[in-house]
């Protein structure tokens, strides 16, 4: 068992308010981990911390030698400006940023990779379509094509299957399974607990701190879910300073 991500007493948040508190634990290399929890539990913040967008308030994340370029991140679809005049091809090609940088063009092999990725998510023929004209499911397919081009060892998916039809979700989950088979480490924030039970070997239940972490079936026991729900409702806007000793 080789670790890929280690959380050391990790606290992440905004303006001193922790969104996730004192998280300890290890994600093994090649893991397929579902992160579940009520709205406001800190799933997105945890993912933003993992990819380096939100710095820790305390504690640290050990990425075990992974470079920023070895991490691929799927933001929540709501964070994308869909009115922006960019077409499918260009959005997918953003996944090649690590090759192109500020000025690099796309050579023939790179262009073929873009077309191949678009074909792999079933959107051949949509290359020139502006993203504003896509359905939610189609846009999620586009973002998955971009993830494919990033070819990363660690893949972090924030609510990848929210608000899309079952057929698209099944197709995209097929890709996730394939990446898992290739030995990549995958973390996905999910609300569909049935999907977690049937398709994910391991789950982490959080409610602004870790509630349970282990085999999915055990983590999703009724007692744990009830505990998580109560903990999220207890959010205190005027909380006092945390008394858990700092490192």
């Amino acid at each position: 068992m080789i670790p890929q991500l280690v959380f050391h007493d990790l606290t992440l948040g905004y303006e001193r308010h922790p969104a996730i508190h004192h998280l300890d634990g290890t994600v093994e290399r090649g893991a397929l981990l579902a992160v579940v929890g009520p709205n406001g539990a800190g799933k997105s913040t945890l993912f933003k911390g993992i990819v380096g967008i939100v710095p820790p308030l305390a504690g640290r994340i050990d990425r075990c030698g992974l470079d920023r370029r070895d991490v691929a991140y799927l933001p929540q679809i709501a964070e994308i400006d869909r009115s922006f005049p960019i077409d499918v091809y260009d959005l997918v090609a953003m996944g090649l940023w690590r090759q192109t940088g500020l000025f690099g063009g796309l050579g023939r092999p790179a262009r073929e990779r873009v077309h191949h990725a678009i074909a792999a998510v079933g959107l051949t023929g949509f290359e020139q379509r502006p993203i504003g004209k896509l359905s939610g499911g189609q846009l999620q397919r586009v973002l998955f094509a971009r993830l494919m081009l990033q070819d990363a060892r660690l893949i972090v998916l924030d609510e990848p299957f929210n608000g899309i039809d079952t057929r698209t979700a099944a197709d995209l989950f097929g890709l996730v399974r394939r990446w898992h088979g290739e030995g990549r480490t995958i973390l996905a924030a999910l609300h569909d607990l049935d999907m977690v039970r049937t398709s994910f070997p391991e789950a982490l239940l959080i409610a602004r701190e870790a509630v349970a972490w282990g085999p999915a079936a055990e983590v999703l026991a009724a007692a744990n879910l009830e505990k998580a729900r109560r903990m999220c409702e207890a959010f205190d806007e005027d909380a006092a300073e945390c008394r858990v000793a700092a490192e």
Binding site: G52, I53, I80, D81
Partner: peptide, 10 residues
């Protein structure tokens, strides 16, 4: 402008 979260991740 299109996808700030993605840019910040790469």
């Amino acid at each position: 402008s299109v996808d700030p979260g993605f840019l910040r991740s790469v």
